[in-house]
Amino acid sequence: MIVAERKPIEQIEAMIEGFDRILIVGCGTCVAVCMAGGEKEVELLAAELRMKGKLEGRNRTIDEITVTRQCDKEYLDALEKYADDYDIILSTACGAGVQLLAERYDEKIVLPALNTLFSGVAEGAGQWTQRCMACEDCILDQTGGICPMTICAKNLLNGPCGGTDHGKCEVDGEKDCAWTLIYNRMKKLGRLDYLKKIQPPKDYSVMTKPGRYTHEAFKEAQQEE
């Protein structure tokens, strides 16, 4: 899941400065789960901006709507009948959603209300951690389901390094050493011998951006076109 956080209200306020009709568009998928840009958060942000505006004596209209997903074009079509009534669209989707919205309504000013953080998991109530950095060549089979590319500060594939300190990382004493975690997990699984295998250097050439992917089933159809 993509994890994001709302931008500071001052920053949002600076972005929308000078516009009177604002539509806030929420996204009902990842950012709704991480309590940053779903239906509820959009309502909250709209209420906050409305109240702030009134307290400062501004007369502006702020309305809200939430779509199922902002990263799929078909869901954005629903906004067509509203978009013309507003000066700007403030999107509470991740960066990908904001970009697609800006592409779909390219005659409108589309602004981001969130900072996209990472793709991660929920650790507890209101707490998320990064677990994957989309390196395009998954090695979790070799590391007991713990990703050294994400958790290890040095992205080591053959760890640990000399900086491991009682299970913590030399870079930050708060952070776990990925390779200590991997060792303990592999020990628990009885697969320590796997760690003796030397991993070849990571192929970073596949990590070129922007990433592009076509599903196998659609490749032929695309070629025909």
Binding site: K40, E43, L44, A47, E48, R50, M51
Partner: peptide, 11 residues
Amino acid sequence: IDAVLLLRAFE
């Protein structure tokens, strides 16, 4: 109770 509900009362 939800933050939206509380803000709405103030609004």
